[in-house]
């Protein structure tokens, strides 16, 4: 079996790379695929927190590279889903502890026994990014409808284009706020896609549920009712090659809803 290696990257920090990695990984595992998540953010690891696995980590990716353990020993199984496992980043080391070749080797080994290897990339375009991209053949570029995030995504797309190994890259637009788009205070999905001219793989609405799900260490895809969870499940379906329409994020259109919106706007202005 040869699995797919997908790097999740963004350029800018704080746009939701790690959240996206955790959720797509969990969603794919729920569908019965074998998934490994690799946290390559050495020194600033967080993927373990989002999955609620922070207390189970014994070995890290640096331990594997420096041969203190076998690769299999370092893989931490998810609490709920045995299909999902995590290869954590070392918290006490920096990006230079790993080389691109070493990471590529790990990805190549892992894809032998898994359907998906998702690489959570650190922010920036330096060594950490180069490492994370080394073993991947596909990329998901996470951005938000803000100027700085889009500019950085554009830079990342340029870098991905120059990499021969990356066969395809897609855009995931995170933290979309339909009410702001409607009032022309936020760039719309079409605006962003047009500017970056990159195919879209997902639109994730801003969801306060993300905060509580991070607090609990449980990805939001596990919450059947959350809109962001549904959006992430759709992304997973699209990765699997299914054509799923993008969620209609428009606000409720009833009369009462309109009045409520109007009052909310007035309140915000005051």
């Amino acid at each position: 079996m040869t699995g797919r290696v997908i790097v999740i990257t963004s350029g800018k920090g704080g746009v939701g790379k790690t959240t996206t990695s955790a959720n797509i990984g969990t969603a794919l595992a729920k569908d019965g695929y074998k998934v490994v998540l690799i946290d390559t953010d050495l020194g600033l690891r967080n993927l373990d927190l989002l999955l609620g696995l922070e207390n189970r980590i014994v070995y890290t990716i640096v331990d594997v590279i420096e041969e203190r353990c076998k690769l299999k020993q370092a893989l931490v199984k998810d609490k709920k889903n045995p299909n999902l496992s995590l290869l954590a980043a070392a918290q006490t080391r920096d990006k230079s502890a790993v080389t691109a070749e070493q990471l590529k080797e790990i990805c190549d080994t892992l894809k032998e026994e898994n359907d998906f290897v998702l690489v959570d990339c650190p922010a920036g375009i330096e060594q950490g990014f180069q490492n994370a991209v080394a073993g991947a053949s596909e990329a998901i570029v996470v951005t938000t409808p803000e100027m700085s995030a889009i500019r950085d995504a554009d830079r990342i797309i340029g870098l991905l284009e120059s990499k021969e190994e990356i066969k395809s890259y897609k855009l995931l637009l995170n933290r979309v706020r339909p009410s702001l788009i409607k009032s022309n205070e936020m760039m719309s999905v079409d605006d962003v896609v047009e500017i970056l001219s990159c195919p879209l793989i997902g639109i994730i609405p801003e969801d306060t549920g993300i905060i509580t799900s991070t607090n609990k260490g449980e990805p939001i895809v596990n919450d059947e009712n959350a809109l962001a969870g549904k959006a992430y499940r759709n992304v997973a379906q699209r990765i699997l090659g299914e054509e799923v329409p993008f969620l209609d994020l428009d606000e409720p259109k009833g009369f009462m809803a309109k009045i409520k919106n109007a009052f909310a706007k007035l309140k915000a202005k005051v």
Partner: peptide, 17 residues
């Protein structure tokens, strides 16, 4: 309403990109 903010962002971004 508020047409400015979004189109300002789009135009600035297009130029800078």
């Amino acid at each position: 309403q508020n047409d400015a903010s979004k189109s300002v962002a789009t135009n600035r971004l297009k130029l800078v990109l």
